[in-house]
């Protein structure tokens, strides 16, 4: 079972992960904000994750761990 974990403290909500995800697993939250004031990335469709790591490859902040 593949899945991602976003380090919410580090995430800057830039959305490059969501843009790269081929399965629309990730989305930038419209409500949840971290301590730095960024709306954070979250797995909204985790069941679709195939563990391709495209999100992590595009994340400029190394905020995503991918498991498979």
């Amino acid at each position: 079972m593949a899945g991602i974990t976003v380090d919410e403290k580090i995430c800057k909500g830039c959305g490059l992960c969501a843009n790269a995800c081929p399965k629309k697993v990730i989305s930038i939250s419209e409500h949840r904000m971290n301590q730095n004031g960024y709306f954070i990335a979250e797995a909204v469709n985790p069941q679709n994750c195939i563990g391709c790591a495209f999100c992590a490859i595009m994340c400029p902040d190394c905020a995503i761990v991918v498991e498979r």
């Binding site: 909500g13 830039c14 959305g15 490059l16 960024y38 994340c59 400029p60 902040d61």
Partner: peptide
Amino acid sequence: CPGCTHGI
């Protein structure tokens, strides 16, 4: 900054 690909 958010989205700057320096980090990559």
